[in-house]
Design a protein around this nucleic acid. Structure first.
Lengths: 138, 138
DNA sequence: AACTCACATGAGAATGGTTGTCAACAAGGA
DNA sequence: TCCTTGTTGACAACCATTCTCATGTGAGTT
């Protein structure tokens, strides 16, 4: 079954720096929205920093595995990526109209999750928590 | 962008009862794991209650819209369905080894989510919360 | 029971995001 | 500079899901 793999990207093996990876990282650092691999690929194209689509996917995966970017899935199953301000564990409050994202922390939620898991005898627990709403400008 | 649609399945329009829908509902009521549309389709086939794949998808969607089953996405983007014991709002603690699922409630989380949203000026907020762990038998 | 009509079904084609393939490439050490 | 090895890119392959549309089947109605 394996609904949620355990592999937690152990110390990212030093990856070789390339123009493509740099362009992608640079682009991501300039936007604060969650964008799909396809979106990012298109933006790189426009901007002139042409990068192969497969490469965009590969790098996003690698960056996500290293914890350099956050990933989540839209309702239609597409993966969207975003480089976050903090390395620390956090969640997102995303505007479903414009994609504006606020990083939020929830000590209360973390302890709740841990407690619920403990009570039910589950170990090695991880969680997925995302909030969606409509921000003030809409 | 539309990361998370708002449409909340208003009172399910009376659907016509069919052999296929019944077979699917019956099958789902017998298992407590989250299963994919493909899995369910295969099980129906084995069992002799042959139902078209498209029909399985359509009915699962309808049932999910009516709140009769819960849906979540696995890490590889596949949708998995499960008929839940309670109509009330709840979340899941899923064993990533065997799929065993415990329905959990979290008043604390609900209020936290509402509060965070309010503080950031977001309205019409929904959330996605799922817990994954390894249960005692593993 | 025969008729009707709108909804449901099923087989297969189409979609579309993501991953695999593999030859050409480039980074960094020797 | 030469070598080794990870990286890239174009394109094919995958595969869950959705679409299409002709056929089937509830459930009133006559």
């Amino acid at each position: 079954m394996t609904i949620h793999p355990t592999d937690q990207a152990t110390a990212g093996a030093a990856r070789r720096p390339t123009r493509q990876r740099a362009a992608l990282a640079e682009l991501m650092s300039t936007t604060s929205e969650f964008l799909s691999a396809q979106d990012l690929h298109a933006k790189l194209q426009e901007r002139g920093d042409s990068v192969g689509l497969a490469t965009v996917y590969r790098n996003l995966q690698a960056m996500a595995a290293d914890g350099d970017v956050d990933v989540l899935r839209t309702d239609d199953g597409e993966c969207v990526y975003r480089s976050c301000g903090t390395e620390a564990h956090h969640h997102h409050l995303v505007c479903r109209e414009c994609g504006r994202t606020v990083e939020v922390e929830g000590p209360a939620v973390e302890t709740w999750a841990a407690e619920v898991a403990r009570q039910n005898g589950f170990s090695d627990v991880t969680h997925t928590i995302e909030l969606f709403g409509t921000c003030t400008s809409h």
